[in-house]
């Protein structure tokens, strides 16, 4: 039997679904030529004249000088003599330097996080400025306890309507009211995943909708030009017990959701928000939203499994 944990504030941990180039601590490197500064008083002069040569244009994320070493240029496939020859041919004067360049690996691009910066500066210091919002998301203190409790509450609502193993609610974060909620009906209709249903219920709340027969019959096909009311899911947060599939993830992009919280991963198919693909991180998409996974993960997984067990039971019944 599960230990009773209800008195604990939160039994789950939120996981932001971020691009790999943010979550990794592996630094890609590029080789450069560096030289030792012999005459420290001429450092600024050397830095300036190197800057005018435009040989370090792709290295602006790096500090020019580390201790008494200065970056000359990208190593490309040159040897030290060729490096000296190339710089001198451009009019560079090695006065104040040792004149014996060496190859060293440096970070190939600007670190995206403090953690990456720690790794990067072991190689070479960077002109790094932390993104405070991102750092707070990474450290897990982006949401305070009250906000986490609210997230917990909304996901419990999604669990409560998880007919068919998946439940979804759309919430207006300005007043924490639920705009729409739905279970999952994909066994009746292949498009009626919880997300597709809840998005249509939001539409219905705005005077539209396609799936609720009571509203579609009376509705005319005249287009409402009123631009003052709510527009799709703009500004709304979406809570869904299981990771949306690719179709549903893209439906949330089309619907302009503000933020998406989900419980457990989709073990049965290609997940669209961190599983097989991350639709919210695709380049070229016209709308972006943040994604957080892991809300009430165990409870959500149990809900999904319960359906699976039901289906298996039903199938057995059918075959008998």
């Amino acid at each position: 039997m599960e230990p009773k944990r209800s008195r604990l504030p939160m039994t789950w941990a939120l996981r932001p679904v971020l691009p790999e180039n943010v979550t990794t601590d592996n630094i890609t490197t590029v080789n450069v030529f560096v030289d030792t500064i012999i005459d420290r008083t001429s450092t600024s002069k050397i830095v300036k004249s190197l800057g005018q040569l435009s040989v370090i244009n792709s290295l602006t994320h790096l500090k020019r000088v580390k201790n008494q070493t200065i970056i000359l240029m990208l190593a490309k496939d040159l040897n030290p003599d060729e490096c000296v020859a190339e710089l001198e041919s451009k009019g560079f004067n090695f006065a104040g330097l040792s004149g014996r360049p060496e190859i060293t690996p440096v970070p190939a691009c600007m670190p995206k996080t403090c953690s990456q910066n720690l790794q990067a500066r072991k190689l070479w210091p960077c002109n790094f400025h932390p993104d405070k919002r991102l750092e707070s998301i990474l450290s897990g203190d982006f949401f305070n306890q009250l906000e986490l409790a609210t997230i917990d509450g909304h996901m419990r609502m999604a669990l409560a309507c998880a007919t068919g193993g998946v439940g979804a609610v759309v919430v207006d974060p300005l007043n924490n009211l639920i705009v729409a909620q739905s279970g999952d009906f994909r066994d009746e209709h292949p498009v009626k995943h919880a997300i597709m249903c809840v998005v249509d219920k939001v539409a219905k709340a705005q005077g539209g909708g396609a799936w609720d027969s009571s509203s579609t019959i009376a509705k005319t096909s005249r287009i409402n030009d009123d631009k003052t009311g709510p527009y799709l899911c703009t500004g709304y947060d979406v809570y869904v017990t299981k990771e949306p599939c690719v179709m549903c993830a893209m439906a949330l992009v089309h619907s302009r959701a503000r933020r998406v919280f989900y419980g457990c991963e989709d073990a049965s198919g290609p997940g669209g928000l961190g599983g097989s693909v991350s639709i919210h991180l695709l380049k070229g998409i016209n709308h972006r939203f943040e994604v957080f996974a892991g809300v009430l993960e165990e409870e959500c997984r149990t809900a999904a499994l319960a359906l699976h067990t039901n289906n298996v039971a039903q199938n057995i019944k059918h075959t008998e």
Partner: peptide, 27 residues
Amino acid sequence: NTVNETKNATRHAEINCVDTIIKAGFL
């Protein structure tokens, strides 16, 4: 497409076709 009519950004032509087939009972 019936996106504007339904105020539902997912009502693309393909989805509407699936609806028609399901409504006709041809799952």
